[in-house]
Design a protein around this nucleic acid. Structure first.
Lengths: 207, 207, 207, 207
DNA sequence: GATGAATGAGACTTCATTCAT
DNA sequence: CATGAATGAAGTCTCATTCAT
């Protein structure tokens, strides 16, 4: 029994992994369920045993990866005390994760929105969730007087937009991975934009 | 003779307009050529008479709209003298154009990348073109000593990312249009990010 | 008036010529009416002004070329006195004509039957017409005691079949034209098959 | 496992059978894949599961039927010792097979070449294969001194042409089947054409 | 539970024919 | 009369999903 459950879980895992790989390479619409099945060492029916359909599988993948990313972000934030450092840690975590997993980056930043109307809502929610995190810490920074009062909603959105663009560009270009270097270059702009002082000491410790 | 050419051009125009409307509502893949035909008051064959295929039509639309936007941007830039004001004018133009034409915004910011791999190249080129414009003026600002030396490549990309995010969010949300207000709130961040002084006088004149 | 009629006739001619060329190159189904129009230096509508439709054009071509071939055959037959020589002259005429006009050969021998059910009847009639000619002269040869009594229906059909195969093979192969040589080699077989003596004197004079 | 393979093979068989029936009735171009599907008690997708496309299906049919015919011919030839008898057996086999299966005759003799340029090559190969067989045995007959030296290439082609014409005529006419009688009448001509003596004893035994 | 053959609605595209200019 | 843009029916093929084995 337990063995079977484990087997089932592993298969589900394999399917999700394969789906991520193929969705991010071909996009949602150009990905065939049969391709995912083959790449998961399963059959068409096997995929449908674990997931009700292609759309559901995509959504499950979105949720799973978002949750994992969220966990990492929360951890990274918890390890910081300064509110600006917390916000920065959130961005860095996203970036470092994507940097190690280009398919994930592409899946999240390009294919998720491109999959079609039916997924927009969920993708936006995930984006808003992240923006909310950043915003909350910027708010705290304002409250603590670390930075001057600003429109943190807009600031957080701008930060996310900049991050999004950098990751997208990297994910779609064939060049060598230097995502982290780019972020190192980006951070001063983000900091200045909210009137925060440079904090070079983090970059050494985390990147 | 001339009459026929005019007629043909109008029909082509109608097709492109309809295509923009429908592509931006449904996305590339969920748009049927027949829908475009119906919305253009044409027939299926009519669309194919003017465009070799769905993909080509999409690409033509991309190019046409990019070219028009580019023209507007160039005009706006020409009307400014200060390099920072020029860069800002570029952003404002994009934004004001989209603000008046939500379908266009969605088409460019969401559906273009979502249409599939075959279009990525072209979309990226368009993005890079815009980023290049902004960058060039930031470079000038540095040269003229208006701002301190910075990595203008990253700065321009960050600006574009912020703009992209704001437009995307607005285009996909059902709320009332307040895109220009959002940009007014965003600009201070962009200015601060490159160490430029606030320039309140523009906002009054143009927005 | 007369001028216009001449113009119309010339155009019709051009259309028929172009149609023959293209039908025999691409086959009936793969030939576009627009191709014929372009090759005739006319427009789509131009073709439809002269012919009610693609099928009718094909049929008209079939009839026109069959009639011309028939005329030539009749002439050739009239120039001979011996019944076997007359039958042979019929075959030689077909062959010589095709030899000079590969497209015609292919049109008649390959594409005519391949055009579809709707043309079978007419093509068969033309074939039967030719077989009838040959047969009639073989009958005469029997009556005159030139050859022994035989089943002339079958003999004529066999002769036509042999001719058809040789022409088809030549028309579809890319090799150099040596159709007449092949017929020179074929004739002895045909003659022997009906018990006729070799008649070498013709070959020199006509081929 | 084995059961599934058998099922698949049967379905493929049904599709090929239906395809032969319909292709030979309507011709390649006028045959709808959906018709074949319906006649095979399958679905459109079912046909495409077993064959990559309509053209491939046609080609597969061509190859399958050619191979079967070839087997029968080889058997028939092996059962004879005299080279002329072997050549004759080849023709008789084709004829007897077609006689029992009018659709097959029409498919091979009419529709195969009419299907379009893309199939010409293959059809010609099959024709040449058959002609080669006949020729080889005629060559042998010459070597053994059974018949006088002749151009066996032309002779074999003429024989094939005669056969082709007779079968085509029969296949396209609506009259009752008397194909074998026609061949009985044709054979003397073929024999005489190569200078072979009549061999009436076969006709009784085989036809 | 797993498999993969089968389904069938639906997409894109073609092209003979028409008709306004 | 000629033109060629426009029509729209129809055909091939795809692929998410189902279900018998």
């Amino acid at each position: 029994m337990a063995t079977e459950q484990v087997r089932a879980q592993r298969r589900q895992q394999r399917i999700l992994d394969a789906a991520l790989r193929i969705f991010s390479k071909r996009g949602y619409r150009d990905t065939l369920v049969d391709e995912i099945a083959a790449a998961s060492q399963t059959s068409t029916g096997g995929v449908y045993f674990h997931f009700p359909g292609k759309g559901t599988l995509f959504l499950a993948l979105l949720d799973r990866t978002a949750a994992r990313l969220r966990e990492k972000i929360d951890e990274a934030i918890a390890s910081q005390t300064d509110p600006i450092a917390k916000a920065d840690a959130a961005l860095q975590t996203v970036l470092r994760t994507f940097s190690k997993h280009r398919a994930l980056a592409r899946f999240f930043m390009v294919e998720a929105l491109g999959a079609g109307n039916e997924f927009h809502q969920r993708v936006l929610e995930i984006h808003e969730d992240f923006i909310g995190i950043v915003r909350r810490h910027l708010d705290e920074a304002v409250e603590q007087g670390v930075i001057d009062p600003i429109d943190t909603e807009v600031a957080a959105r701008a930060w996310f937009g900049a991050l999004h663009e950098i990751v997208t560009h990297w994910a779609l270009s064939r060049g060598p991975a230097r995502l982290e270097d780019t972020y190192a270059a980006l951070r001063p702009f983000l900091m200045r934009s909210v009137g925060a002082a440079e904090q070079p000491e983090w970059s050494g410790s985390r990147l």
